Computed example of a mutant assay.
Amino acid sequence: MANPWAGEVEVVLNGAPLVAKLTLGALAELEAGLVTGSLLDLVERFESGRFSTRDVIAVLLAGLRGGGWRGSAADLSGAEIGGGPLAAIRIAAELLARAFTLPEAEA
């Protein structure tokens, strides 16, 4: 089960629930693999709705690897993501938000 306070998001891949998290290493891998721009540019693309499917796959792959998954980009591209493409977009956006937002203080 994913722990949102630790920046984790659950991804169902081929029917199996997995934990995804954008660790520092996963963020470095994500940034190195970006075709254009920086991580800030990527976040801005998601915030403005100008992201590409390549962006979604890159974020999901980095998050899954940060969560311990050892698959490849080809494995992810050929996999069934629970909830389909819209869920994949939501999960990628959630990963970015959790990586770059401080948790709210408990009341």
Results as ranks from 00 to 15, higher is better:
32 A>Y: 10
69 W>Q: 14
26 A>L: 14
67 G>H: 06
73 A>D: 14
76 L>V: 00
65 R>E: 15
57 I>A: 15
1 M>P: 03
12 V>S: 07
10 E>N: 03
8 E>I: 00
81 I>S: 06
90 R>I: 02
92 A>F: 09
31 E>I: 04
96 L>D: 10
9 V>E: 06
60 L>A: 00
97 A>K: 10
65 R>K: 15
42 L>N: 08
64 L>C: 08
58 A>R: 05
66 G>A: 09
60 L>S: 00
12 V>D: 04
29 E>M: 10
32 A>N: 08
58 A>G: 11
80 E>W: 08
41 D>L: 06
33 G>C: 08
18 L>M: 15
54 R>K: 12
96 L>A: 02
50 R>A: 11
34 L>E: 14
5 W>E: 12
51 F>D: 04
74 A>D: 05
21 K>L: 05
43 V>Q: 09
39 L>I: 15
46 F>E: 10
67 G>Y: 07
93 A>Y: 12
71 G>W: 04
98 R>E: 12
56 V>H: 06
105 A>H: 03
49 G>I: 14
39 L>H: 09
93 A>L: 08
27 L>Y: 11
84 G>P: 12
46 F>C: 08
91 I>Y: 04
16 A>E: 04
58 A>T: 01
63 G>W: 01
86 L>W: 09
32 A>H: 06
39 L>A: 12
80 E>M: 09
102 L>E: 14
80 E>A: 14
13 L>Y: 01
39 L>G: 14
34 L>G: 12
61 L>K: 03
61 L>Q: 05
107 A>L: 06
55 D>C: 09
35 V>Y: 02
19 V>C: 08
83 G>H: 07
66 G>C: 09
26 A>G: 11
87 A>S: 12
80 E>H: 07
26 A>I: 12
52 S>D: 02
21 K>Y: 00
3 N>F: 10
42 L>Q: 08
66 G>K: 08
72 S>I: 05
97 A>D: 14
90 R>E: 13
43 V>A: 06
2 A>I: 15
11 V>D: 02
6 A>L: 10
96 L>F: 12
5 W>S: 08
